[in-house]
Amino acid sequence: MKGSIALHWRRIPERYRLEGTHCETCDSYYFPARRICRKCRRKGRIVPYKFSGKGRIYSLTEIHSAPEGLEDQIPYVLAVVELEEGARCTAQIVDVRKKDIKIGDGVEMVFRVVQREDPEGLISYGFKFRKLH
């Protein structure tokens, strides 16, 4: 959200480095980080976990009509990525058009500009993925 500095800043460990959580009780992985295990609730033992950044395309689309802040990036491939630990996240897939990528393809996390505000505003960075060859 534009103009909200802390909103992005507090998510830097997750957005820059894929730091999520792991429930030691049921072996579930959470990205983004959750403090309450969805399966074990209060019995869950949640510890920090840094994801490897490797995963697969679970579903994908190509966005042609962008929301405010991403107009300059269209068209871009957006996917639900299944990380190798099991958690899923939504992210852009870089340097690729839809004809070159499909469900099941391997991907790896990259660090890119996610949104740029107007020339006087902040630049937000974070994870995207690239297709593995």
Partner: peptide
């Protein structure tokens, strides 16, 4: 907001992800 929209998802985009999976 923080984990879909910020990262480039739109509403048509989210339903497109469902559609692609349904087609698959």
């Amino acid at each position: 907001q923080e984990w879909e929209l910020f990262l480039g998802a739109t509403f048509p985009g989210l339903y497109a992800l469902m559609a692609k999976r349904h087609m698959h």
